[in-house]
Design a protein around this nucleic acid. Structure first.
Length: 225
DNA sequence: GCGACAG
DNA sequence: ATCTTGTCGC
């Protein structure tokens, strides 16, 4: 964790944008090779009625993909959902769940965008930079950039292009036959091809990679009592 | 002004 | 994301 880059989350939109632009200078895009490690799936669910957020971090061993530890944290949410600023809504709960985690993972998979973002700094980049760990954004829907629909067969993918600079910022990926795409982009210490390759390695029977499936399952399980 | 818009 | 039952399709 790079404590020097921690900042307040209760800010206005102009300040939030400046924080994204400042922290994005710390992004490192580089090849990543998946090997024996601890991989974490991270997801947050909400309760509209109580204005509460529930973050879950599911740590799994790779390549066994067995659950090693689950950390859940609930808290009041303050920041609204604004496309392009998801980190300011979800990060506080994620950081609290992280603090309670015994097993610190060395690869992070987030339920949201990474580089495929208007300012190239989605949720996966923001927390990937703060944790200073390899991170991947794995979103269930598209936010920013142009792409052509990949073939329907598992394994097919096409690059997401930034309409501003015309360069690659991610990929629309078919993880199973005849399912909708997932949108993959680098978070930190990761390049596009490494991110796509890694997501395929973490995906088995379902559309979403295993760490994300478990994180989603447990984030919605923090409401009992 | 119009359409798009992670969770 | 959340609020919700049954229901269409492989």
């Amino acid at each position: 964790m790079n404590d020097r880059l921690l900042h307040k989350w209760d800010v206005d939109l102009n300040e939030a944008r400046k924080i994204q632009e400042r922290l994005s200078k710390h992004l490192v895009l580089e090849p990543y090779t998946l090997g024996k490690c601890m991989v974490a799936g991270i997801d947050v669910s909400f309760r509209k009625s109580t204005q509460e957020a529930s973050a879950a971090i599911a740590v799994m061993s790779y390549p066994q993909l067995r659950i090693i530890e689950i950390s859940i944290a609930r808290m009041k949410m303050t920041f609204p959902y604004i496309p392009g600023y998801l980190a300011f809504r979800e990060a506080p709960a994620i950081l609290e769940a992280w603090a309670k985690l015994k097993t610190k993972p060395n690869l992070l998979v987030f339920d949201g965008q990474g580089l495929a973002h208007p300012r190239r700094f989605g949720l996966a980049c923001h927390l990937g930079v703060i944790f200073d760990l390899p991170a991947i954004g794995c979103a269930k829907s598209h936010l920013y950039g142009d792409f052509v629909e990949p073939a329907q067969e598992k394994g097919a993918y096409s690059h997401i292009i930034d309409p501003a600079k015309q360069d690659k910022i991610g990929a629309a990926v078919r993880t199973r036959n005849n399912v909708s795409c997932v949108y993959i982009s680098p978070g930190n210490h990761m390049d596009i091809e490494s991110a796509v390759r890694t997501i395929f390695s973490l995906t088995h029977r379902y559309r979403l990679p295993e760490p994300i499936r478990y994180a989603h399952k447990y984030s919605g399980k923090g409401w009992e009592e």
